[in-house]
Nucleic acid binder design. Structure first.
Lengths: 118, 118
DNA sequence: AAATATGCATAATATTCTTAAGTATAAGAT
DNA sequence: ATCTTATACTTAAGAATATTATGCATATTT
């Protein structure tokens, strides 16, 4: 697992991009999808995911539909047009950001013994 | 500029990696260095940077020395041994994370018109 | 029958950042 | 000379976002 600070700020990007590939998904499905696709390296917690989904819905980027599965109710999320635009923007931004960061860290070579260490 | 959430959690990584390349640096120098090297795409704010430097020092990852420049006092930061280890760890972690994320977003192709949009 | 998996929600807390204000010296422009 | 911008550090208030924990309930596996 990655230290949690790193994942911060990428949750919306992850959710929107997954919903761009899949017509509709529900919360639990999203957590499993991410876990599987990252070999367990990114595990979304419910306490972070659900509030985020609610916020994206409130912002008009997602719509919901409830579907009964037996006695349980599943809540599916689907992108709006605006949500799709945001998905494009967010994913592109992350890719640019990750390049910028890697450039910035590029001159860095792990060195266990720097001469000037105190 | 990137949306601030994205940069969250990378500040320590940035600071530690820069101090791994440069024997010692002071706060303002770090902000300028990052700004220059990222073409202004990442601009550290003082309100974020200085508390972080103080925390890293409190955690024993950095040491400080004050140097008088005329009437002003400049505070230089330098890695400790532990700080250097953390620098290695943090940079490696970010690189892995950025790969994981890019894999996760990989199947994503920007598409302005998904058939199922609501 | 018990344990695990599925499924959603929210409150309390912690972390980390933004924004803003305060303080002060140095350098460049008008 | 004076004003503006750059240099340089600090801290407080507030916002945003996540962690941790709790609660509730059904379904499946052992």
């Amino acid at each position: 697992m990655y230290s949690p600070e790193l994942i911060k700020g990428t949750l919306q990007t992850i959710v929107l991009s997954l919903l761009s590939e899949n017509e509709r998904m529900y919360g639990y499905e999203i957590t499993q999808h991410v876990k599987d696709r990252t070999q367990g390296e990114i595990q979304l917690t419910e306490g972070a995911l659900y509030p985020t989904l609610h916020k994206l819905e409130a912002d008009g980027l997602l719509t919901t539909e409830k579907v009964s599965i037996g006695k349980r109710v599943r809540k599916y999320y689907r992108l709006t047009e605006n949500g799709n635009k945001q998905a494009n923007d967010k994913v592109n931004e992350f890719r640019r950001f990750s390049e910028t960061m890697n450039d910035l860290l590029n001159s860095f070579t792990p060195n266990p013994e720097l001469s000037w260490l105190s």
